[in-house]
């Protein structure tokens, strides 16, 4: 088939154009704005580096660091909790495989907002956990750090994003050729050694992709920390959203958002590079 320029364009150009206009151009606009400033509720288009200098100060560096920290907690927890599930689904079940996979996916289809809100009902002083524990007499006073805390933010984000980690991991684990495992067994590798030296390295690409799928949205989270976070749980997403929704500080907000993007893309580049399967490529 010899495609004409016209047909190629009609298939490829329209979607690309849409992404260009409503994704690439907006991102470029943000770059532009990040070098501007606001004076008396007007955006003034003259070049300044002040927004970036401001981010370099203790305050925002601190918030970025705690955002990264919480996102890492969320990612690591999701991996520890999700890996056995992915492994089980990929290699240990046959009959109910698709049903179980569907069950893992189902919560992804429900609203992020609803899933966040649900944790308020569960973790609160009058919530399900505290009241149940008090009813059976395990505690006398409600545990207050359950809600409005880093704990609440972390557990809710794990709940919301973990399925995104299980899926790519499952895909990779399922593709591992059983004969490789048999070989490892035959060579006298124990269960743990086989896992550590064969399965784990082979699943690295899945781990890398899955972790990114958790890490990236966690870095940008703002509704969850706002609803569930305590006085110390401020995350960069909230500060960015604040610059647009509450303060008319688009330039500073754009600069913050671009720094966030920088961190995300750097993390993505590193984890995708090291996420290549080792040895048996």
């Amino acid at each position: 088939m010899r495609p004409t320029i016209g047909t190629v364009l009609s298939f490829l150009a329209a979607p690309k154009l849409w992404l260009f206009v409503f994704f690439v151009l907006p991102m470029m606009t943000m770059v532009l704005y990040s070098f501007w400033r606001v004076a008396d509720y007007q955006i003034v288009a003259d070049f300044t580096l002040r927004n970036y200098e401001k981010i370099g100060g203790n305050l925002y560096v601190g918030v970025f660091l705690r955002t990264i920290r919480i996102s890492i907690y969320v990612t690591v927890l999701s991996l520890l909790i999700g890996y056995p599930v992915a492994y089980f689904l990929a290699r240990k079940v046959r009959r109910f495989k698709l049903t179980l996979l569907l069950l893992v996916i189902l919560p992804l289809w429900t609203s992020y907002l609803v899933r966040t809100y649900a944790w308020m009902l569960i973790l609160g002083t009058q919530g399900v956990i505290n009241q149940s524990l008090m009813a059976v007499g395990l505690i006398e006073e409600p545990i207050s750090w359950l809600l409005y805390s880093d704990f609440a933010v972390t557990i809710a984000l794990v709940h919301i994003y973990m399925p995104y980690l299980i899926l790519p991991l499952y895909a990779v684990l399922e593709k591992i050729n059983p004969s490789i495992l048999e070989a490892a067994w035959d060579l006298g590798g124990g269960r743990i050694r086989t896992f550590l030296s064969v399965i784990l390295p082979l699943s690295l690409p899945g781990i890398a992709t899955g972790c990114l799928f958790v890490f990236i949205p966690s870095m940008g989270a703002f509704v969850t920390p706002e609803l569930l976070g305590g006085t110390r749980s401020i995350m960069i997403g909230s500060i960015i959203a604040q610059q647009f929704g509450v303060a008319y500080e688009y330039p500073f907000g754009s600069a913050l958002a671009l720094v966030l993007m920088g961190i995300i893309f750097a993390t993505a580049a590193i984890s995708l590079r090291y996420g290549k399967p080792k040895g048996l490529a």
Binding site: Y170, A171, V172, G206
Partner: peptide, 25 residues
């Protein structure tokens, strides 16, 4: 999302974007 879909998500390197043209759009 299914298995095949997920396979496509696996590492293929980040995109390099050509950002020129079409300012007019």
């Amino acid at each position: 999302m299914s298995r095949e879909t997920m396979n496509l998500l696996l590492p293929s390197g980040m995109s390099r974007r050509g950002l020129m043209r079409l300012m007019a759009a």
